[in-house]
Every structure is written in structure tokens, then in C-alpha cells.
Amino acid sequence: MITSVRRLGYLVLAWLSFGLGVLGAFVPLLPSTCFLLVAVWAASRGSPRFAAWIRAHPRFGPTVVAWEESGAIPRHAKGLAVVMLSVSIVVLLFTVSLWWLKIGLVVGLIALAIWIVTRPEPVSSSS
């Protein structure tokens, strides 16, 4: 019984994450890759067939597989992430009033941008 409930929980999380990932492919500012990675992780525990389908998907699969195999991020995704992090930093600079919080958030976002930029790119990427 508990295994069935756990499996169902993973499956629900996988479908919700997949739905958000698909939506993120069309809605500006909504990320898709992170939701797809959560979807594959949850589907691997709730429905391995669904996880295999996501990995084989022509639009979403290559990014997920590149991350799983080598922690690779496509160049266009890196660029978009850095732009969005930069916009977030500018917004923080004008909206957060506590200087220590502002500094902490800006340093954290810069560190995240550096980490993203230093990830390898997929071997088959033409970017």
C-alpha cells in the first residue's frame, strides 16, 4: 500500500513538473529545463516508462540527457540564464532596502551565474 502511494506521489510530481516544463518552453521567464529534470527524476521512481519517454522526446530529451550524462548546459540556455540573473540583480538593487540582504542576494546570483557559465556544453551542440 505505502509503495503504491509513494509511486503515485512520484508520478503526480512527474506530470506536474513535466507540465510546468512544457509551459516554460512557451512562457517567457518561466524556466523549463529545471522542471523537466525534476520530472525525469520523479518519473524514474514512479514510472520508468514515462522517464524514458521524456528522455526520448525530440524537443526536451536532448537537454535532459546532456545534463544527466555530463552536467552539460547548451550555450543558448547559459546566455538566457545569465541575462535573467542580470535582470534579477538590477531589480534587487532597486527594490531590496536591507543592504546586507541586497549584498547577499547579489553575491549569490553572481555565484550562480558563474557556476552556470562554467558548466560544459553538450558535445553535439551546434551553438
Rank of each mutant, 00 (worst) to 15 (best):
S70C: 06
A43I: 12
I114W: 14
A81V: 14
V12M: 05
P28W: 01
L16H: 03
I2H: 09
T95V: 09
W15F: 13
V38W: 09
I89G: 01
L101N: 02
H76D: 08
G108H: 09
G21L: 00
V96Y: 04
P28L: 02
R49C: 03
T3H: 08
L8C: 05
V106C: 13
S17F: 06
A66R: 05
L29V: 14
R6Q: 11
A42L: 09
L98N: 10
M1N: 08
S86Q: 07
V38C: 10
K102V: 01
S127Q: 11
W100V: 07
A66N: 04
L16G: 06
I89V: 15
A43Y: 08
L101T: 03
W67G: 01
A72N: 11
V83Y: 11
Y10I: 03
V83S: 03
L11M: 05
R55P: 02
H57G: 01
L36R: 00
V82Y: 04
A52P: 00
F18W: 10
E68T: 04
F18H: 05
P31F: 03
E68C: 05
L37N: 09
R119C: 15
L13G: 07
L80S: 07
V64H: 08
W99E: 11
S124M: 04
H76I: 10
L8Y: 04
K102F: 02
C34Y: 04
V22Q: 02
I116N: 07
I54S: 02
L16T: 14
S32I: 00
L30S: 02
F35Y: 05
S127L: 07
A113F: 13
L98M: 08
A25R: 01
V64D: 09
A66I: 04
E69G: 01
V123N: 00
R59H: 07
A113C: 10
G19T: 13
L80C: 03
M1G: 15
I116L: 15
P120W: 12
S127V: 08
V83K: 08
G21W: 01
W115G: 06
W99T: 07
F35K: 00
L23K: 01
V96E: 15
A81L: 13
F35T: 00
S88V: 11
W41Q: 06
F26N: 02
V27Q: 06
S86D: 07
P62C: 15
S17L: 05
V123H: 05
G71W: 10
K102R: 15
L109H: 09
G19V: 06
P62T: 12
S126P: 06
T3L: 14
A14P: 07
A39M: 03
L92S: 07
M84K: 06
V123G: 02
H76P: 13
G61Q: 14
P122N: 11
V91K: 00
L80D: 03
M84N: 11
G108K: 10
V27T: 06
F50L: 15
W100S: 10
I116S: 06
F60I: 14
W100I: 07
L37F: 13
P122D: 10
R59G: 01
P122L: 09
P58Y: 12
L101D: 00
V117N: 08
G71H: 07
P62F: 14
C34I: 15
V117W: 15
G61D: 11
R45Q: 13
P120C: 08
L16D: 02
V87S: 03
S124P: 02
L8M: 09
L85Y: 12
